Amino acid sequence: MFQPPGQQQTEWKPRTTLGSMVLAGKINSMDQIYENGMRIQEAEIVKHLLPDMKNQVVHVGIVQKQTDAGEMTRFNALVAVGNEAGWFGIGKGKASQMRVSIDKATNAAFLNVIPVKLGCGSWECKCNQLHSVPFKVRGKGGSVTIEIIPGPRGLGIVAGENIKSLLKLAGLKDAWTKSFGSTNTMSSTTKAIFNALRSTYSVG
């Protein structure tokens, strides 16, 4: 199969025992990894078990620092990954080049993937399909607090564009949201969403 230049798939050579088990087919789902409390140290493990993962650059910032050699510019990237079906992760990366900072952040997001429990917790719906959260969840990041409230089918996600795109990446189709604090700070907002989605398991 032809691939454009720069898109060639390099062969994965696992560096960890877990990676070797995944490649050998001894572990064939992310659920197995989480049920056994295993730690993921290679992004390729997630890519192998969840090949439909998508990534989204949430924010790229520029940090300029004065040094003896002059002004040094570095990029801070924040990336979210998800398969739109119950897996979601966020990661940060820093580098002197924008592309490298995004690649680092993407890799970190894969290592930070969590399961998101989907369900139908809306009293208006009760369809028992996996389209919303099973109950109200709340997450905090910095000065930002996000509440995600189960919504009936067909509602869509009632939120600003940035929050909506992240919840879709996690697999939500319908939900009400409430946000408190400076939601323009995307690093805090993204962390609040991550913590809220993580509590779909820790609370339930």
Rank of each mutant, 00 (worst) to 15 (best):
G61V: 00
T73H: 01
K47M: 04
E71R: 13
H48Q: 15
S101H: 12
V60F: 05
L111A: 01
W12R: 08
V60K: 01
F88L: 06
F88A: 06
Q7P: 04
K54P: 03
Q9P: 13
I40C: 11
P134W: 02
P115M: 01
Q129P: 02
K117P: 07
K13W: 06
R74W: 03
M72N: 08
G25D: 10
G139H: 01
M30Y: 05
N76K: 10
N76I: 04
W87Y: 15
G89V: 13
V79G: 09
M30H: 05
K117R: 14
V116N: 00
V100Q: 13
N107G: 05
G19Q: 07
K13N: 14
R138V: 13
K26S: 13
K136G: 11
K65F: 03
N112G: 07
G6P: 04
D103P: 02
I27M: 01
V60D: 02
K47L: 10
H59C: 14
K13S: 11
P51Q: 07
A85G: 06
G82M: 04
H59S: 14
V22N: 01
H48M: 12
P115I: 05
V58F: 09
Q32A: 12
A95W: 11
M72C: 04
I90E: 06
L111H: 03
Q66E: 11
Q56M: 15
A108H: 10
L118A: 00
L118I: 15
T16R: 00
P134G: 04
S122P: 02
G93C: 14
D68R: 14
L23E: 05
V113F: 06
T10Q: 15
A105L: 12
N28L: 02
I62W: 04
A108N: 15
K54R: 13
Y34C: 05
P14D: 07
F88I: 05
E71S: 11
H59K: 14
A109E: 04
A77G: 04
V58Y: 05
F110D: 00
K104P: 03
E44G: 00
M98C: 07
G19E: 09
N107H: 13
F135A: 12
L50P: 06
A85E: 08
A24K: 10
